[in-house]
Design a protein around this nucleic acid. Structure first.
Length: 500
RNA sequence: GUCCCCUUCGUCUAGAGGCCUAGGACACCUGGUUUUCAUCCAGGCAACAGGGGUUCGAAACCCCUAGGGGACGCCA
């Protein structure tokens, strides 16, 4: 048996997600336990959504958590490059091979035709998928289309009958009919591969032996297995982990839970506590010990002890665990050191000082003024929102709309936030001063404070969102019915102001 | 709509046919320690989704039902 090699393959399209860290943790433990290697690969084949900042953040988040990889874009290795955008040629030659051997074909269908097709299949209650329109194009047809400059995609062929058996380390064989499997696009019209192709090619070339990934992939496993077969490669062992859940059991999402690793860092959690907590999701130490280090987890790790029910990410239990680390695992000196590192991060201070400098006369004025940058949630109650122009319902609506508005921002810069909020206030027909009032309360806990727009720019999206959610809850929360109405009203506003 | 996966206290879990009157932890409640609070300590509340089998014996194995979740993109 060759060396065990596992990988985490995040796509750099946003804040580093705790779900990514969760899967990374189990891959890391499995590899280390078997004396193998853990690889980090960046799956940035989505040109539109991938960006460098996100990649940097993901690497930083995993490093912060102490999940060290052996090979990756930052440290190289024998199987690089480790960034898919730098491997285009590799995918091209592989897709050529599939084409030559008749396992794949060019498809010229427009997205309009495809969405029409989907609609029709929906009404006919048939399984959704490509209908094979371009499956049997003649060489001349194809030449014609290419001549007309219609950019093709390349799809994989799929057996029409029979079924595929997916073996999984954690569950019984999963049997899926080939009829359920779509003729997946392997190569997009921009010439870059889709996940399915890139993933299979890279896992093989990087000699990955065990693919431990989220349960969401189980349905596409047959596509991957089929590709391995087409290429004549031996597939890795598959293992599908349960998905982390929100309190309502839906897949963990940023809308309902702070889901970025950065949030927990900013809120003052210790990385070892977060790591420990993730290790308790779907897994437990053989003796049920609750507090354990990454090393302890690795030496006691057994993938077969993973339970398959999707665990709810319970922030309260994380708080308790983190408290224990703070109290029990750190000496006073370590505590001082770790706290200082957290509180006096140069980036953070550089952003905050210009905001407070003009408002202080003594250093002793700083703490009360800047406290809200460091505290978890401002201490506020319903009374805090008393205002001569705005009723509580108005405040609630404003906060909810702001939450939605900043959610859609493609970049987190002061000016972008300002513009967005100004436009929103205008479209709601509310004076800026009144409009901003509930935001001040929600973010800073007081209307006497540093510029609220600068402040949320410093605090970041996750913390801002958490505070907005908190404030809305204090104002009585939003019922399902209210939410529906608000959504409608908000959509109308967006339409009116022509915003996207 | 089609397919797939899952199901033990509110939550994280232990459980590999008899050790189960189902254990631990978070949360919650009660009491103790503490000038207060927190910590800490002691105690309490609370679950095998339902129905059929298999078996001397089922939380565990099988089947059905129900519930939950996921997938169905030129996203990953």
């Amino acid at each position: 048996m060759s060396e065990v090699r596992t990988r985490i393959a995040p796509s750099p399209t946003g804040d580093p997600h705790v779900g990514t860290a969760y899967i990374a943790l189990f891959n890391l433990c499995y590899a280390r336990q078997h004396g193998g290697k853990f690889i980090l690969r960046i799956e940035d084949t989505d040109q539109v959504r991938s960006n460098q900042k996100s990649e940097d953040d993901i690497l930083a988040a995993l490093s912060w958590l102490g999940m060290n990889w052996d090979e990756g874009p930052d440290k190289g290795g024998d199987f690089g490059p480790y960034r898919q955008s730098e491997r285009s040629d590799i995918y091209k030659t592989h897709v050529e091979k599939l084409l030559d051997e008749g396992h794949a074909f060019h498809c010229f269908c427009s997205s309009e035709r495809l969405s029409e097709l989907r609609k029709q299949q929906m009404t006919e209650k048939k399984p959704l998928g490509y209908d094979g329109h371009c499956l049997n194009l003649s060489d001349s047809d194809r030449a014609d289309k290419l001549q007309q400059n219609i950019p093709p995609v390349i799809r994989m062929k799929v057996p029409e009958t029979g079924s595929c058996v997916v073996k999984d380390m954690l569950r019984d064989d999963v049997t899926i009919d080939w009829q359920q499997i779509d003729m997946q696009v392997l190569m997009k019209s921009d010439g870059l591969p889709t996940y399915h192709l890139a993933n299979v090619v890279d896992d093989h070339l990087m000699q990955i032996t065990h693919v431990i990934r989220g349960e969401e992939w189980i349905n596409s496993a047959p596509k991957h297995l089929l590709l391995y077969q087409y290429f004549g490669w031996e597939p890795p062992v598959l293992c599908h982990m349960p998905l982390l859940r929100n309190a309502d059991k839906s897949k963990l999402s940023k809308r309902k839970n702070p889901a970025s690793v950065g949030y927990y860092q900013r809120m003052g959690y210790l990385p070892e506590a977060v790591c420990n907590f993730l290790g308790m999701m779907g897994w437990s130490m053989p003796d049920e010990q609750e507090m354990f280090s990454l090393e302890e987890m690795i030496s006691n790790f057994d993938i077969n002890r993973v339970s398959l029910g999707g665990p709810v990410f319970d922030a309260e239990k994380l708080d308790w665990l983190n408290g224990r680390y703070l109290r029990e695992a750190l000496s006073d000196d370590e505590f001082i050191q770790r706290f200082s590192q957290w509180a006096f991060q140069p980036d953070m201070l550089q952003a905050i000082v210009p905001l407070i400098k003009q408002r202080v006369e003594r250093f002793s004025d700083i703490a009360p003024l800047a406290a809200f940058f460091f505290s978890g949630m401002p201490t506020i109650d319903e009374q805090s929102f008393e205002h001569k122009q705005l009723k509580h319902e108005d405040a609630k609506k404003i906060l909810q709309f702001i939450a939605w508005r900043i959610e859609g921002l493609d970049a987190w810069h002061r000016d972008r936030i300002e513009t967005a909020l100004m436009l929103l206030a205008e479209s709601m027909g509310i004076k800026i001063r009144d409009f901003l009032f509930p935001l001040f309360i929600a973010i800073a806990g007081s209307s006497v404070s540093t510029s609220v727009i600068d402040s949320i720019a410093v605090l970041g999206l996750d913390i801002t969102r958490a505070r907005l959610r908190h404030a809305i809850a204090i104002l009585g929360g939003v019922s399902k019915k209210q939410l529906k109405n608000l959504e409608k009203e908000y959509a109308a506003l967006e339409q009116k102001s022509g915003q996207s």
